[in-house]
């Protein structure tokens, strides 16, 4: 028993990196000529990598905060809707002539508000996290749809208004090393959260809240505040994801975040975070996100797009089951 534990312990810590390496190697050896997303035959060709990263910016920026929330034993199903709403708000601000920085800041502020509403429902109203965030999933989505005029599907140029030039450069044009700012923001946020998890009070208290809530409370930790703060953090990251997505697509689509909650759960579970709380690392979720994005985009080269839902669903079940089997603690029947 103990020996196999040591082996699984090692696998648990590092398998995720191996998976990414193997996956990239496989994709690199495949012939990608037919697929328009990839300009040249090799997956590792620079433009292809840039493409994958800028498409992935939303999940990359969300996965860190989402990990910390799940480590604390809570969940946010509204993250996709919050992302959509932020995308719409950001596009509206831009379309109506608000300059980049204020528009960016205001959208992030919206994210703070959306996260705070979740935190309020869960911490103060004591509504079960799943239900509370299902309520706001519907609420945020509804608001996003209402903000978009009837008869149009998204906020975009038209009717005398035109998106400013800077709007899509955030998510598309190379800012540094040819990667757009959205990717750099995702990387910066992830690095910041890695540090917060390792050295920050919030990171430690999140683990304590998820690992042993009674012990955390007995130690004088205000777990309610921790959870509230984490919801706000997820709200901010959803706003950043919305900005990245709307900028990449050059429009504010009220459905652009649909399904993001599933991808986020999948990525975090894949990274080895236990849904019972306490356990989990930001950097592993980040790698998990890269794997999922490589997999889904790479898959498009071999199989048609309509297989994606099935693969993600199956991956979610598989990740949940493996996670459970690996992290199961021994005990009574």
């Amino acid at each position: 028993m103990t020996k196999s534990f040591a082996v699984t312990g090692f696998l648990k810590d590092y398998y995720i990196y191996l998976v990414l390496i193997v996956l990239v190697a496989l994709l690199a050896s495949a012939n990608l000529d037919q697929f328009p997303l990839f300009e040249r035959g090799n997956f590792l060709y620079k433009r292809n990598i840039i493409n994958i990263l800028r498409v992935s910016a939303p999940i990359l920026v969300i996965c860190g905060a989402f990990t910390l929330l799940m480590v604390s034993g809570y969940i946010d199903l509204s993250v996709g809707s919050a992302m959509s709403l932020s995308a719409v708000v950001y596009a509206m601000l831009a379309l109506n002539g608000v300059p980049f920085l204020p528009a960016f800041a205001l959208t992030v502020l919206v994210g703070v508000l959306l996260g705070a509403i979740n935190g309020f429902l869960v911490v103060r109203m004591r509504i079960t996290p799943v239900i509370a965030t299902l309520i706001t999933l519907s609420l945020y989505k509804g608001i996003a749809l209402l903000l978009v005029e009837d008869g149009t599907s998204a906020i975009k140029s038209g009717g005398g208004l035109k998106m400013p030039g800077w709007f899509n450069s955030y998510g598309r044009s190379g800012a540094l090393l040819d990667l757009p700012a959205s990717v750099w923001v995702a990387i910066a946020v992830t690095l910041a959260l890695i540090v917060i998890q390792k050295r920050g009070v919030l990171g430690k208290y999140a683990a304590a809240t998820g690992g042993n809530p009674t012990a955390a409370k007995l130690s004088g930790i205000k777990t309610g505040r921790v959870v509230f703060g984490l919801y706000v953090l997820v709200g901010i990251s959803a706003a950043l994801a919305g900005i990245a997505r709307s900028s990449f697509m050059s429009l504010g689509d009220p459905l652009s975040g649909d399904g993001m909650e599933l991808t986020a759960i999948l990525v975090v579970l894949l990274g080895g975070t236990a849904f019972s709380g306490g356990e989990g690392k930001v950097q592993r979720s980040f790698i998990g996100a890269l794997i999922i994005m490589c997999l889904t985009i790479g898959m498009l080269t071999i199989v048609p797009a309509y297989t994606q839902t099935l693969v993600i669903g199956a991956a979610l079940l598989l990740a949940a089951a493996t996670n459970h089997l690996v992290s199961r603690k021994g005990g009574r029947k």
Binding site: T309, G313, L317, A321
Partner: peptide, 30 residues
């Protein structure tokens, strides 16, 4: 998944929701 493996039902049925719809999409090519 729920009974045998003890995975929380919310996660399991979110997964099977996608598996079921995904199969439908495969059969109808989306």
């Amino acid at each position: 998944f729920v009974v045998r493996l003890g995975v929380p039902s919310i996660i399991v049925t979110l997964g099977t929701m996608m598996v079921a719809r995904g199969l439908a999409q495969v059969i109808t090519h989306g």
